[in-house]
């Protein structure tokens, strides 16, 4: 078992087989730097719980194909990314920090799917981005490719 500590001082015990899906922790264990508790100063407990849930489910990725559990895993992944935008982004940051390739792929793709076809206004609101372009700069970009800013498929809703 490996102990992980979130930035709000909560400790979690995870099986080594699960936790080594994180390249970062795998390297730490191999280098002998993971003797007691591994502190994760960038990850809060709420996010870490989600990450551990994923790691435990994906523990036997290779075996899933043999035992026909692939569909089960796919369904889990679909359910897993069904979370709020901020929560999803926290998991992406954690997956990037811990270097968990599959989790990064899953969550970034889900985030991209949510942004697809959105209007510029909706994206700014969803991601709380302040527009720092001048009016001229913005107009120049629009004039460059006016076709990209029109069309019935553009979705102005925020969710």
């Amino acid at each position: 078992m490996v102990k992980l500590k979130s930035n709000d001082d909560k400790e979690f015990e995870v099986e080594e087989a699960a936790v080594i899906q994180s390249e970062m922790i795998k390297n730490m264990i191999e280098d002998g730097c993971a003797t007691s508790v591994i502190p994760l100063p960038n990850i809060d407990s709420k996010t870490l719980i989600k990450v551990i849930e994923y790691l435990n489910k994906h523990i036997n990725m290779g075996k899933a194909a043999e035992t026909g559990e692939e569909d089960d895993l796919k369904e889990f992944d679909e359910q897993f990314v069904n979370m709020g935008w901020e929560e999803l982004f926290d998991v992406i940051m954690a997956a990037n920090y811990l270097n968990i390739h599959e989790l990064m792929e899953l969550c970034c793709q889900s985030a991209a799917d949510r942004l697809k076809n959105k209007s510029v206004r909706a994206v700014r609101e969803m991601l709380k981005i302040t527009n720092d372009l001048t009016e001229e700069e913005e107009q120049e970009i629009i004039n460059d490719a006016p076709w990209a800013f029109e069309g019935p498929e553009i979705d102005d809703t925020v969710n």
Partner: peptide, 9 residues
């Protein structure tokens, strides 16, 4: 989408 999102910020 990328052509459009150049104008986000």
């Amino acid at each position: 989408d990328l052509m459009k999102f150049r104008s986000v910020c």
